[in-house]
Design a binder for these strands. Structure first.
Lengths: 109, 109
DNA sequence: TTGATACTTTGACAAACGTCAATATATCCA
DNA sequence: TGGATATATTGACGTTTGTCAAAGTATCAA
């Protein structure tokens, strides 16, 4: 049976300097943005389009999702700071934010 | 109004070699495992414990979650291939799988 | 101003998720 | 064999998420 406060610590140096709660939340937002297969492919497509970016209308067909769904995913990516957009007439060109993954980079070993 | 198949392609070289669906799914599993703040801190704690690992009982208190919740998160991390465990008596020592993030590494710029 | 195209927002719904209490399983020790 | 500790599983719950149809907003051109 498991009872309150009965856990016996193994007295192992748990952590020297554990990640802060704030940083964990910030990082998890970035990870979360890439945690859906469609959204990951979406980001991949946008990133591959380089500085020029890619017209959002060209992203619907290859991902086999409705246009509103793609729009929703792009919003998630933008709010996570991974992509941004530039308007050109009625079109929106999406591009990857430079160094958007540097924070994740520093977390990896 | 948005109508079926009306999207006009901008004829931009969309992708040279877009990520495959399988790879996207595999990668998103890893990202998903780190998409929760508590689970991210959990992995951070385990990883910091090095080869020896850390006793699961020492992870409940610092993360301020119930024992079943920590157990659940550890299972998610294990199924994502990020951590593994070694039994020692009644204890389970969790440790980070070496190079578990190499796949994510190769995805980053 | 009217119509066409590009995109976003809203509303709805099922599925997945994070959480905990309660219970079950595993391992050791007396 | 029992009791104690460590961990996992089950079941339930409210919340979040991915999705689409429908409707709304934006921009341009005739």
């Amino acid at each position: 049976m498991y009872a309150e406060g009965m856990a016996q610590s193994r007295n192992i140096p748990l952590t020297k300097r554990p990640i802060s709660d704030e940083r964990a939340t910030s990082l998890s937002t970035a990870f979360s943005a890439l945690s859906d297969p469609i959204r990951l492919r979406l980001f991949d497509l946008v990133r591959r389009a380089g500085e020029t970016g890619v017209c959002s209308c060209d992203l619907v067909e290859p991902l086999d999702r409705s246009q509103p769904t793609i729009s929703h995913h792009l919003k998630v990516l933008r709010e996570a700071g991974l992509v941004d957009s530039r308007r050109e007439g009625t079109w929106l060109w999406y591009f990857a934010v430079p160094d958007c993954l540097s924070d994740i980079q520093t977390f990896l070993p």
